[in-house]
Design a binder for these strands. Structure first.
Lengths: 236, 236
DNA sequence: GGGGTAGATTTCGGATCCAATCAGTGCCAC
DNA sequence: GTGGCACTGATTGGATCCGAAATCTACCCC
């Protein structure tokens, strides 16, 4: 284990996050690990030892095992018998394919969601977009960007579709972070104008435009991301 | 629990299937349940009690719990805290959306797989298609149809993509069975000619045609399926 | 000095026991 | 007669203990 900060030590933060959430222990453990992974505190390829997590959260290993299985369903961990769980590491090609999947699936999600988004939802989305533009922190940007996109699909309560889109976001979260951190900052105004176009189409309930703009938005992100070798740890 | 045949009784078949597979117990339990669900022995909405499965397979409840989580990741079961696992029941609209997802995702899978399928793979696919045309059993048709389609994607070893496509097939397996059983038989020659078109395009390595034919194939199936109320238990 | 193997340690997988929660039932009051 | 409540049986969730597999290490042989 590397000497990364905040690792191997049970901070008060950890326990607060854990205890703060109600419900079954396995669900709470899952929520804790989910946040750790999405926030980038656990990197792709990193192993997750059941005992360590259990000890840190004051639970036994069993709910940790259950939690890891739940996360597996969300694309956040992977499992190998007798070898344990890790955060999946995607190859450059795999990340690219996930983005291609997003190009096809998310416009569908938006299309299905579009007629069900009311004025209230539109206002919330506009607010999120305003906060993105006012924001200057990269980590916060990742959160808000996710909130914006998944928010535009929130009208459609089709479980299989939403679950899959969320899964795609989950599995590429780390690479998105690396991309934004490394040099995506210059691209932010492009992202914002594209968001504006999408939001406009959503408010107008123009399905064809919404679909087109969203597809283009994801496609351009994929291409830009593909040009950054460092995102995939290929800078050597 | 209904008086359905082969339910609640540990047949020799069950144990043979279970013991026959190697590997960890949870993996074997998962394989057993997976087959039960895909073969239609467990219907959507049906509850799966851990103890019953454990007893039937001669294992403890723990590997059953793990297996249920694995199946959850494959879209074959769903879980509610303190209420246990069930086979998911999809609404008409949900099934339709899953088919729309397939319309978008599977052509991508085929496109990614296309350049990697060699002559050997082509021969195997042609053989499967021949067996579909020679076949007269509806259950066998379901198996072979699945083998054909998933086989065309087998060249692409991108885990996220293949896993998702498989998941989509899993979650609609029951509705496909109901459809085929009820009246899809007349449509079989259509299915077969469409398969031939797809196979041809695959062999010619014509991505555009393959994608187009496949999308149309899934789309037509979705529309036909939508016309059968009984598939969704709406015949009252 | 390098590679391979055997032992020790670590970590995961499974069994059993106990606690928590839910559903169905019957009783009582209104 | 109906609605609500408490109780009981059934079922899942969690803890602890034990066994099995993999990894790491140290040692020996080449």
């Amino acid at each position: 284990m590397g000497p990364r900060a905040g690792h191997g030590v049970s901070t008060d933060d950890d326990l607060a996050t854990f205890a703060g959430t109600g419900g079954a222990a396995s669900v709470r453990v899952a929520a804790y690990l989910r946040e750790q992974i999405l926030r980038g505190h656990l990197a792709p390829g990193e192993r997750i030892r059941q005992e360590e997590v259990a000890e840190r959260l004051g639970a036994s290993r069993l709910p940790v095992r259950e939690a890891l299985r739940m996360l597996e369903a969300e694309g956040l961990t992977e499992h190998e018998p007798h070898k344990g769980a890790r955060v999946p590491r995607l190859s450059r090609h795999e990340v690219e394919v996930v983005y291609k999947m997003r190009e096809r699936l998310e416009p569908l999600a938006l299309l299905e969601s579009l007629p069900l988004l009311d004025d209230d939802a539109h206002a919330r989305l506009a607010d999120v977009q305003r906060r993105i533009e006012d924001n200057d922190d990269l980590d916060r940007f990742l959160e808000l960007d996710r909130e914006f996109h998944l928010g535009t699909y929130s009208g459609c309560h089709i479980d299989p579709l939403n679950a899959m889109v969320t899964r795609l976001w989950n599995s590429t979260q780390h690479y998105r972070r690396a991309f934004v951190t490394l040099g995506g900052r210059d691209r932010m105004w492009v992202v914002n104008s594209e968001h504006r176009l999408i939001l406009d189409a959503v408010v107008r309930r123009d399905g064809a435009d919404a679909e087109r703009f969203l597809r283009g938005h994801i496609r351009r992100t994929r291409i830009e991301l593909g040009h950054h070798p460092a995102v995939f740890g290929e800078e050597g």
